[in-house]
Design a protein around this nucleic acid. Sequence first.
DNA 1: AAGGGAAGTTAAAACGTTTACACGACACGG
DNA 2: CCGTGTCGTGTAAACGTTTTAACTTCCCTT
Lengths: 355, 355
Amino acid sequence: MGNDMVSKGRVTIREVAERAGVSTATASRALSGNHPVPPATRARVLRAARDLDYVANAHARALVGGGRKMAAVVVRQVTSPFYAQVAEGVEAEAADRGWLCVVGATGGDAQREMEFVQLMREEGARLVILVGGVVEDDAYRERVAHYAHALDSSGARLVLCGRPAPDPEIPALVVEFDNEAGARAITAHLLSAGHRRIVFLGGLPGNTALDARVAGYRAALAEHGLPPEAAHVVDCGLGRAAGHRAMTELLKSTREFTAVFAGDDMVAAGALRAIADTGLRVPGDISVVGYNDIPLAEDFNPPLTTVRTPAEELGRAAVRIALRDPEHAAGAHHLLGTHIVVRDSVGAPPPGRAL
Amino acid sequence: MGNDMVSKGRVTIREVAERAGVSTATASRALSGNHPVPPATRARVLRAARDLDYVANAHARALVGGGRKMAAVVVRQVTSPFYAQVAEGVEAEAADRGWLCVVGATGGDAQREMEFVQLMREEGARLVILVGGVVEDDAYRERVAHYAHALDSSGARLVLCGRPAPDPEIPALVVEFDNEAGARAITAHLLSAGHRRIVFLGGLPGNTALDARVAGYRAALAEHGLPPEAAHVVDCGLGRAAGHRAMTELLKSTREFTAVFAGDDMVAAGALRAIADTGLRVPGDISVVGYNDIPLAEDFNPPLTTVRTPAEELGRAAVRIALRDPEHAAGAHHLLGTHIVVRDSVGAPPPGRAL
DNA sequence: AAGGGAAGTTAAAACGTTTACACGACACGG
DNA sequence: CCGTGTCGTGTAAACGTTTTAACTTCCCTT
């Protein structure tokens, strides 16, 4: 056996066909399995391909095939534990079907988001998944409507994870957690522990995910017979730094409270640190709950009681739903359930401040 | 102005050319900027493209251009904070140059790693970055040698982040942190706090990154005049669960120690939890240090003293180095520096057990 | 024995770009 | 006025695959 490996340039299907003594058409069919080919011929072609270390050119394939199995997931940043889990779910579900998955990080910049979607159009992605809450203003609505129509006209699907569709008529589907139910449940948990003065830390008006959590929080309060004034929302937005800053501020204020409901676990992380910095104890002096149950939430100080949103499942669901029912998908709205996970950051309110 | 947008099928460059009254060659030149075109003509083409919402077909482009600007980063899992940061660095550096970045997760499975690299060959990736330590056995060496040659023959570069090249002659370059120096530094930190009985939790023989940390640990001990028997390495591997299990085990054993050096921050997280479970205090009873300084390390209980490995910078460096000096790159070995970040998980050894 | 398929195969035409080559126009120096 | 160079543009040939339509064989039915 001589030197079969061609060192210069890529091996093409033509060379494989030649070596197997068939035409490129037959070789293509044997390799792709798109059309039946007698076992003997097939074996010969496969053998030739192996000998030559043949690698199909995905571009040529996509060019003639008019598209390719590729999904794109767009997040603010991949280092956010929650987004990372969603991306992992998308990647896993895509990989299961032999699809390629590319991830784009926008850093929260609309400009980069647009560029990335444009790139995905050029690349022929058949599925783009935008994940993460966002404040819903006119610019947002216009942007997403543009994506939806542009992608739709190229035969691609758009799914919005945790962010709203600007209009039910738009060719996009949304998959998200039932934020209101989750927030209501964990607020009720705090209430049943005896807390009456609970502050919500991490509001971001216009962000539909956060607004829903706030709504759930208010609803739970109301259900418990508390007056609307019992609700106190600090609109500090998300992120560890924001939580730390806002909590520090809050502790310096005259506001009375015995528990804080953080908009997500990262805010809770910042809040916990701020509380520890002032020498107060959790849950002895203040109880804290978070949202999302990121993987390290049980390593916080103390382990965090929070609501578990199965992020990886969200990612998987997004691609599954988008690919399952192509026609009926557009405009559909899917809600995923959540549940509380109880750890050590909630206790009874301190006696002196029970109300 | 009528209905310019064609609803069926994608707009091709031919239609743009037609509308602008030029040939496809001129249109291509105007759009890609590969060849000078008089401003007037150029403007006309660009206008037509905008009107038609033309989107170039990346596949056709790559097919004739023989490749594309695409980098691939392969990690065990994207939800690991450290890997996520590396991936973010790669993504950022790639995006800065207008490259596309795709990430693959292997779950530690060699089979999936091979499939992914194969896929990247088909897709024409020009840069693939394998990140994360691995035990270096024959299968590994063979696998990586295969990747290196296969990619090299398609004109792509291979970079290994935190894993060894099987052979200096192989066409791959490695970029990693100086694990031995980092481990030596943090061990010295423990020693200067008074600890003499330090156990290393998270060894994984054959894993070069961990072996280097163990070597640094032993070196620091030796430099302090301690006998080789002072070193005690628990080979439990990495991950939060492994750390928790091994620490629990260790606490039940008769082994005397006052400090533990965890192989990475996730192991430390598990260890901290195990210690807390038995009612012991950190750093009062036991001091703990980690490795990597993941974003949430300061939210551990207590905030973790660890060595900071700028993971995002590792990712950026990988693509920068690979793209900078194409010829000289192969076989090169780059070491990135690290430094200690001191928090609250290290204290003096308890008096009764100072040695 | 003729006709009708089925099965296996192939030649050639797509897919949408880029680019090598050629061609004409035009300016300029001789 | 004629070469010579430059500039702008167009024609057509790539790039590597899949697929349509056609063409053989060969077997089976009648």
